[in-house]
Amino acid sequence: MVEARTRSKAPVRNPVLRRLFSNRLALVGGVILALLALGAVFAPWLSPYSPTQTNFTALQQPPSSQHLLGTDELGRDILSRILYGARVSLVAGLVSVSLALVLGGIIGLVAGFYGGWLDNLLMRLTDAMLAFPFLVLAIALAAVLGPSLQNTLLAIGIVTTPVFARLVRGQTLAERPREYVQAALALGVGDGRMLLRHLLPNILGPLIVQVSLSTAAAVLAEATLSFLGLGIQPPTPSWGSMLNAARGYLAYAPWMAIFPGLAIFLAVLAFNLIGDGLRDALDPRLKR
């Protein structure tokens, strides 16, 4: 009763959310992300032109009132391509990290909860995967799987999986001896229910932070693979491949490189800012 009264005075009830909202940098990240997401969702309505429509009477036009961010080497409107490219980037980030979260989460929960040889085996595998430089492994996987949107997501997801497996295992190990787990065990709760209903909700905090930071890395990885020509293939607009195409015209059409590059930078920055803010909000001791 007392608790409820003191709580209701605060503008935002949840202390974690309140700390998050009072973090200016995290708020900036949230606003950038919201704008990018809106741009991606409403791309068909917001785009002044078709993202793939070539126009040979308006090749490499500098930014103007007609083309706010200029046009590329085929006369396509860069603003429209960036808006549609946001779809690719955000979907790539979210889908690949979701994949890693589910796979890594299962591996980590099972390894941490059951322990023994299974834990040993799974963690050795995780260590082995973590031994590879993230990008080198992603490039190799993307190369073997072949360039396409699905394979890019798969490659980034697989490479991100061990990060979550490690994290979830560590958290599960820390939770396992706690009383609520022991109580549930004593009550004879089934394993599946144990892992998903009891353990998982209690380790969500650090997991959410990692999701945000990994999404930043995944967006960057997708842009990098597309920049190298190993990711999303033309004519689908992707920020990374737009930058790659722009390299040849840097001397006289720098806007072709600058705007897609800024878009990637802002998207990655937004996820990093939110991840940082979440970490500080969840663990106020770290906030200095």
Partner: peptide, 22 residues
């Protein structure tokens, strides 16, 4: 520092080439 971590290095490289070379 966070911007340094977030900027794709191919973009940074291209910007530097544009500024210092071109």
């Amino acid at each position: 520092a966070l911007s340094g971590i977030s900027v794709p290095n191919f973009f940074l490289g291209i910007l530097l080439v544009y500024l210092f070379s071109i």
